[in-house]
Amino acid sequence: MGVAIPAPALRRTPSVPYRGHRFLRRAGFWIGLLVLLSPAVFVFLWMLSLSLKPDVENTAYPPIFIPRNPTLDNFREIFENSPFGRYAVNSLVVAVASTALSLALGVPAGYGIAKTKANGLAVFVLVSRMTPGLSYLIPWFILFRYLGLNNTLWALIITHLVIGLPITIWVMMGFFEDLHPELEEAALVDGAGIWAAFRDVALPLSRPGMVVAAILAFIFSWNNFIFAVVLAGQETRTLPVAVFNVLTFEQLAWGALAAAALVVTLPVLLLTVFVQRQIVVGMTAGGMKG
């Protein structure tokens, strides 16, 4: 214990006789990683495989893993036989609009909460984040019917704020708390108002936080199913509802179903490829789903 032996010397001694062991351990690690990743990889590749095969191959047993006659017919079918393009536009409009509104309202709110250390408000935001979406639906359904907003995209944009706004406030709060107050103090000393200090100092510095919040709000809005399934009409369906309806009406059209599923989920998967770091930050900070 008391003797000061240089650590590297200690570490080298056991590693020489165990070189074989170390190789085994390496191999074990990579095999473990393979086992860990294979369920995720398998499901996505299987979805891709289904979407590229005609239904004769999709319903063959034993299953055909690599398409023998790869075709894009399934994709053509969903876009030609149903207004899938329109649903995609709906999804995009709802996700972009609700994300923009979430940022416009949530960024200043996060700033205000961080500055005043209003923990009561923070708890309130968290609780609204944790409440199941389903529990809002009955009052909304009645309210929107009263206001004549059912079957409009507005109903969806407003309701998706319930997902985007709390997560934006939560993420931004964390970012503004970490900001050095001296910077804004300097601006205030120079005679700038609170609003100017926010706009010219805090806001530009918190751009990374806004990117995180925007990405999360977009993903959760895009993926949302439960609000649209109740509140959307024939014309205002979003993609998750549309893909669900493909299943119920054509039970065994597996190729078309997989193609639809792929089209729905591809945008957010691609987003993950490009902004993985922000998603990881946001998921662990604001870390919960809608």
Binding site: L36, V43, F44, M47, F225, A258, V280
Partner: peptide
């Protein structure tokens, strides 16, 4: 790590239908 987190990013309904198949 990016590949590993794909399941939680993917649209749940779409993925559910693939599982159903």
């Amino acid at each position: 790590r990016g590949v590993f987190i794909l399941p939680m990013i993917a649209t749940p309904v779409a993925i559910s239908l693939v599982w159903a198949m």
